[in-house]
Each structure stands twice: as structure tokens, then as C-alpha cells.
Simulated assay, not measured.
Amino acid sequence: MIWELVYKIFVDVLTIWKPYTFSSPVEVLNTLIGLIKDNTLFIAIITSLKRLVIGYVISILIGVAIGLIIVKYKYIDENLSPLILGFQTIPSVCWIPFAILWYGINENTILFVTVIGSIFSIAISTESGIKNVNPIYIKAAKTMGAGGRKLYFDVIIPAAMPQIVSGMKQGWSFAWRALMAGEMLSGTKGLGQVLMAGRDLGDISQVMAVMIVIVAFGLVFDKLLFGKIEQNVRYKCGLENKN
């Protein structure tokens, strides 16, 4: 309702905005229905989700491994942590020229950008989560005979899981952004390509329709996947009551 009211005031009444620069919700809905009917949206969603899942799984494996290595070795921690933090501040779109030069314009390019977009946030969260484990847990475990790998995998990592999961959740959002950037600039199939097609055709309704789809998927995954995982982990750690 607010969207339609803004459209009526600024486009129809005051004529400050042009219809081709700001679309009404009815026009966006019609465009969305059109994209669904010709299977354009379905194909784009399947393609993007496939890339996202593969890239995200790879970024989790590498990111968690990097975080564990940083915590394990002090020398690596002192020299690699600032570098990773610096890489995290680089926008994902900056990696696209490297990806195109290394892999060409293909699936590997988009996959690389997706992985590089989320890997550093996961590594930083893993490192931070382990470093911030309550020392009392470690001391108590040692007094009961735990040590080495048993201490690490049975006490430290489970205690750090709430922050690690939060990092994975953040990494998912970064992976989404990186994926869209890769698809928009590489011109391959996917939601990013449909978004760019709308821009090239001057169809603001299509641009806004794809943006709504991206937001919707982000909310769905946050509530149905990460929300449940985060709640379960926090409950097991005694940080939240089970509803």
C-alpha cells in the first residue's frame, strides 16, 4: 500500500518521477507473472541456486579450515589474520576481472566470485568464535582429562558454534551478493542475468521483480534454514530456551 501510494504521489500527481524510472506494484506483479509463465524466472532461480549452494559449501569448507589453522598456529595468526580482514573489505565485484582473466567467462568464473565473496567472513567468524570460548570450559575439560583433539573437537568447537553459525549466516548473504555480481557482469544464465536484461531493455519492472525474488529467497533461507540451526545451536549451548 505504501509503495502504491508513493507511486501515485510522485509519478501520477507530482510527476517528479517518470514511469520508466519507478514502477508500480501492479506492473511489477504483472512482469513477475510473465517471467513465471515463460519459465524465465524458474530457469534463472534453479541456475542461481545451484551455483550458490556449490559455492557456499566450498566457502564453508575452506573458510572453517582457515579459521581453525589461524587459531592453531600463532605465527599464521599474527601474519594472516590482518590479510584476511583486509580481503574481507574488498567488494566481490573487484574479483571479477581476476576471475575472467583466470577462467574466462564460464561457470568457474561465477563460482570463484561466489566463494571468494563469503570465504573470508566465515574464516573470521570461526577464528573469533574459537578465540572467545570461555576459558573456564577449557580448564574444566582439562581437569577431567581432555586434551589434544578431544579437547578441540568436543569442547572448544561446540562452544564456538553459535558464533560460527552466525558467520555462516553472514557468509550466505555475502555469497548471494557475489553471485549476483558475477552473473550480472558475466552475462550467463541466472537471476543476475535477468536483472541485467531488464536494465538493458529499460524495463524497471523486471529489475524490481528480480530484486523482490532475491529478497524473498534471502528471507526464506534465513527463517527456514539458518534461523532453525541458530536456535538449535543456541539451545544446546544453554543460551536460549526451547519454544
Rank of each mutant, 00 (worst) to 15 (best):
M1I: 11
I2Q: 08
L5F: 14
F10Q: 08
V11D: 03
L14Y: 09
I16D: 05
W17C: 02
K18V: 04
P19Y: 03
P19D: 08
T21Q: 14
T21M: 12
E27L: 11
E27D: 15
V28L: 06
V28Y: 10
L29E: 02
T31Y: 08
L32E: 01
A44I: 07
I45S: 01
I46V: 15
S48A: 02
S48N: 01
R51A: 08
R51W: 10
L52A: 14
G55I: 06
S59D: 00
I60F: 08
I62S: 08
V64G: 00
V64Y: 00
I66G: 09
G67Y: 01
G67R: 04
K72V: 02
K72D: 06
Y73T: 10
K74P: 04
K74Q: 14
I76N: 03
E78T: 13
N79A: 13
L83G: 08
L83S: 06
I84C: 05
G86Y: 00
F87A: 04
F87S: 03
V93G: 07
V93A: 09
A99G: 02
A99Q: 05
I100A: 04
I100Q: 03
L101N: 05
W102Q: 08
G104A: 10
N106F: 03
N106M: 03
N108E: 12
I110T: 07
I110F: 01
V113I: 14
T114V: 15
V115R: 00
G117C: 06
S121P: 01
I122D: 00
A123K: 07
T126D: 06
V133L: 05
N134C: 10
N134A: 08
N134R: 11
Y137H: 14
K139L: 13
K142W: 01
T143V: 14
M144Q: 12
A146F: 12
G147S: 13
G148F: 09
R149M: 13
K150P: 05
L151H: 09
D154R: 02
I157E: 01
A159F: 01
Q163P: 00
I164T: 09
G167N: 03
K169H: 13
G171Y: 04
M180V: 15
G182L: 07
M184A: 13
L185R: 02
G187C: 00
G190I: 05
G190C: 05
G192E: 03
Q193Y: 15
V194T: 13
V194H: 06
V194A: 12
V194Y: 05
L195C: 08
L195K: 11
M196L: 14
A197K: 08
R199K: 14
D200F: 15
L201Q: 09
G202V: 11
D203G: 00
I204Y: 09
M211S: 11
I214A: 04
V215P: 00
G218P: 04
L219R: 09
D222Q: 12
D222C: 07
L224S: 13
F226M: 10
K228W: 11
Q231D: 11
N232Q: 12
N232H: 12
N232D: 10
R234Y: 03
Y235L: 06
K236E: 07
C237K: 10
G238P: 02
